[in-house]
Design a protein around this nucleic acid. Structure first.
Length: 466
RNA sequence: GGCGGCAUAGCCAAGUGGCAAGGCAGAGGACUGCAACUCCUUUAUCACCGGUUCGAAUCCGGUUGCCGCCUCCA
């Protein structure tokens, strides 16, 4: 079995074949760090982290690179408004980014390159493009000569002429052609800048990714990923730069995630419906948010609303409950069932189904439906009067491993109840034995106010954080 | 104008030729002292019109509606 990926380049699912056996070189376009991230930024972080985790689960080594754009127009604007220096703002929001996506269970990239730390490489990349005739300098700016690159438009499937006729691109006076894009931008008075052969300035937006992908992963990489909106012009321009420069294919598989809408409307500043990740995390379990995002195929749009989050919360709770049910039963299980092989086979069958679904272009929606199947199956097993330890362990491991592949933490933080709570539970159990239900209910209500929910099972009372 | 996507139950969402997954919500039932957890039962002319086929949600043509990109944007 092999993994299939929908490749934007060819507009179809293709069997993934790595450049180097057992290794995946993956570059994901990261954030421009001028503000806190919103949930739209969180989606690619979560989606491609899941892709990475799945590759790792399937035995690949993943060299995962996620860049930070730490200098550009938006950062300079923010610096002016906040009366701070660009590097300070960048540092601050990089930390905020890591904290936010960390809450969603996103692993740290292997490399987190920053534009400002790769200035020499960027400048020499541009110099090389100029010497090859793909770029030209005009009055301190450097532009890429788009028409010079024959395959321009192969990712977004646009021809140069179509782009031009429909374009609203301003004809820059310094450009030879409206389609040409900036590689190096001359600094205005007082702006942060770097010295270059063309004077003081800063890199254009696209050149950083070409340069850093090459530096950390090589001329050709396996997977390049980002939001759907980056397809054009950002990724198209990266291809032009990199392939003109390296004279070989830039990326073999291009992956793009879909948008997030808020209450059926596009998230936009003018509508004022931006949802910042850190604010959302204050109100909701970030793990549940991740679960919610993965419940839809990554290329499809997701709508975001309080109602849908509630639905996701309940669904995720069901899976967590199943796991807790199994764990709880393990304390009192035996080794008596004679049909244990059948159950173990069932467990393995579901494991294989999960893999089959994820192999198909990371179909997390179907993978999650397998988690529900496992939950149901485990709960049914638990209805038996006698259970086998190996089967229970099989369910526990399966649920834990597969949720982990999706970056979900199934084990809720269960600090031990303090002595007072412990005593209350014992007290209540005695009351129930004495059939003093009024007292029992009173204790249960009391604990509920403290956020502790009690559940009576045939194997005794257990509790959890509500 | 160019390129592309989507339309499946009250809601969310899989399914790309063979009796329409799964979840949430609702209803009924079982278990329980009552709850909770859990289990069982229950809800679909797959936007519309043609065509291809033994057979279509799925392929082809058309219609309608919504959305994205072509400009900074995840």
């Amino acid at each position: 079995m092999s993994i299939k990926i929908y490749n934007t380049l060819t507009r179809q699912k293709e069997t993934f074949v790595p450049l180097e056996e057992g290794k995946v070189k993956m570059y994901v376009c990261g954030p421009t760090v001028y503000n806190y991230i919103h949930i739209g930024n969180a989606r690619p972080a979560i989606v491609f982290d899941t892709v990475r985790r799945y590759f790792e689960y399937r035995g690949y080594e993943v060299v995962y690179v996620l860049n930070f754009t730490d200098v550009d127009d938006k950062l300079i604007k923010a610096a002016n408004e906040l009366e701070e220096e660009v590097p300070d703002i960048a540092d601050r929001f990089i930390e905020a980014y890591k904290e936010d996506v960390g809450a969603f269970g996103v692993k740290e990239a292997v490399y987190h390159p920053r534009v400002t730390e790769n200035m020499d490489e960027i400048i020499s990349f541009i110099k090389s493009l100029i010497s090859k005739g793909y770029a030209y300098e005009t009055e301190g700016d450097v532009y890429f000569r788009t028409r010079q690159f024959d395959n321009y438009g192969k990712l977004s499937h646009q021809s140069v002429d179509e782009l031009r006729s429909g374009s609203r691109i301003e004809v820059g006076e310094k450009k030879e052609d409206p389609l040409d894009f900036t590689l190096w931008k001359e600094a205005k008075e007082g702006e942060i800048s770097w010295n270059s052969p063309w004077g003081n300035g800063r890199p254009g937006w696209h050149i950083e990714c070409s340069t850093m992908a090459k530096k950390y992963l090589g001329d050709t990489i396996d997977i390049h990923a980002g939001g759907q909106d980056l397809t054009f012009p950002h990724h198209e321009n990266e291809i032009a730069q990199s392939e003109a420069h390296n004279e070989t294919d830039f990326a073999r598989y291009w992956m793009h995630n879909g948008y997030i809408n808020i209450e059926n409307e596009k998230m936009s500043k003018s509508l004022g419906n931006f949802v910042l990740a850190y604010e959302l995390i204050k109100q909701h379990d970030p793990q549940m948010i991740r679960f919610f995002m993965l419940s839809v195929q990554y290329r499809h749009p997701i709508n975001f609303s309080a109602e849908l989050l509630e639905s996701a919360k309940n669904g995720f709770e069901r899976i967590r409950n199943a796991y807790e049910n199994v764990k709880h039963r393990q304390e009192t299980c035996m080794n008596l069932t004679d049909d244990k092989e059948e159950w173990l086979q069932e467990i393995e069958r579901m494991n294989q189904t999960f893999i089959k679904e994820m192999d198909d272009d990371f179909n997390t929606a179907n993978a999650i439906s397998v988690l529900f199947d496992i939950a149901k199956s485990a709960n049914l097993y638990l209805q038996k009067e006698q259970t086998d330890s190996e089967v229970l362990q099989g369910y526990a491991d399966l649920l834990k491993n597969l949720t982990h592949v999706l970056g979900l933490e199934i084990e809720t933080a269960q600090e031990l109840p303090d002595e007072e709570v412990d005593t209350k539970i014992k007290e209540r159990e005695q009351a129930r034995k004495d059939r003093n239900f009024q007292k029992a209910d009173q204790i249960r209500d009391e604990l509920k106010e403290k956020g502790i929910v009690l559940e009576d099972t045939s194997q005794g009372t257990r509790w959890k954080r509500g």
